[in-house]
Design a protein around this nucleic acid. Sequence first.
DNA 1: TACAACTGTAATTTAACTGTCACATTCTGG
DNA 2: CCAGAATGTGACAGTTAAATTACAGTTGTA
Lengths: 246, 246
Amino acid sequence: MNEHTVLVVDDESAIRDMLRMVLDIAGFGFTEAENIQDAHVRVLEDKPDIILLDWMLPGGSGIELLRRLKRDEHTRDLPVIMLTAKTSEDNIVQGLDVGADDYITKPFAPRELVARIKSLLRRSAVGENAQRLQMAELVLDQESHRIFLGEEVVEAGPTEYRLLRFFMSHPERAYSRANLLDSVWGVNVYVEERTVDVHIRRLRMALRTSTLDYSHLIQTVRGTGYRFSSRDLMSADAANLNTRAV
Amino acid sequence: MNEHTVLVVDDESAIRDMLRMVLDIAGFGFTEAENIQDAHVRVLEDKPDIILLDWMLPGGSGIELLRRLKRDEHTRDLPVIMLTAKTSEDNIVQGLDVGADDYITKPFAPRELVARIKSLLRRSAVGENAQRLQMAELVLDQESHRIFLGEEVVEAGPTEYRLLRFFMSHPERAYSRANLLDSVWGVNVYVEERTVDVHIRRLRMALRTSTLDYSHLIQTVRGTGYRFSSRDLMSADAANLNTRAV
DNA sequence: TACAACTGTAATTTAACTGTCACATTCTGG
DNA sequence: CCAGAATGTGACAGTTAAATTACAGTTGTA
């Protein structure tokens, strides 16, 4: 596997040094920034694969950077782990929409941190390597950031795009609404679970064009959540037609 | 969502009481134990969904129980949060090493504890630990939350799914209707015993597709209840009822 | 700034699932 | 073979989960 680069954003150099050592031992590349402005530059220049972002930063809190990253098309999918001090800021964390992919409270065990980083990288790895996700005539092209159904381009909003991408990279598996919120919206995002239903509907409608109807790929698992699957009532062979990267 | 039960293992009753209150407010079911032996019994009897385990316990430290739980097939996937008094990283690392899913150091904010519990429950809800249960051509795939019979997908409601899952993970053994209600519907649920019959029927019907009929796996044990068995109904009965002449 | 697209939420409608009952059928012991 | 007991079955109505619709607030953009 290629070496993954981790960007650490923290204003305390002691912590950065500590993390540099930990990450080095774990075999990760390392780059750092001590404020938001610097961090943004590092993101663009060093193209890290994941960001460890301290919550409390001078010159704009971490959430500011997070928002900015999530707003930009090109950086939206960069996995971010928030580092939160284990004190009263907990309250703040809970009240705000964060949208990070994971978070960890200080102090943390290096082992745990590394495990979470690997987990996140693994999760986004599917998307990294594969520019295109395909199932039969349904193609999600991450390069052009578009969805194709047969010859037609599927009209879908950003959220539906991410939802479909998540589903296509994790097919044949049931996810609860909470799971989907965590994976597609981000952890600590305060959104009603029912909202997922609405986006599922929007996605299903998008997957129905004048000539093709792939809406059945998004299946309801009653009492549990949803699932993306090629086989509903069809033969098991269709299962081997798993989503594949092209 | 169903109510989840939390097992608190701590030798100080004050802490147990505090946790009982906190968890109650958060809407969790509660059960407790003050030592390892007791805890093990509670795990088996109350079937908690998650365990809060104090590190320091009389008569064997918490890690002892943790090891035991992780060793047993049935309890291996039970999420465990370690409660550690001190911030000593050694303990934490050791705990995570043995298989704890998370840890929290005392004193802790109730809010954070609840958040972590929910997070863990969510993770294991459609867990990565999900396995496939298989018997011949009958497959219950917990990952995709589906049942396959040969090439076909079996249509079954949530209750039938849970019922089959229970049977497949506890085969070759007869269960009374009361047993099944406890295990599949949950304890302290007021439902008529005969209701089990109806769901048994529904499950049997589901296990009968156009090409295969596996309904005979769900066997009636007259005067007792039901049993899931691959052994033929006739020979099985003959073995059990060999006291009578025909 | 005005407009168009997108989001999240709540209210309402629709569909699926559940539990029970009444009646049918099968089994058991005598 | 009979009577009583246990289990199977079909129907049905209440309950719950999901689909749908409408809408108001945001956000991005011309």
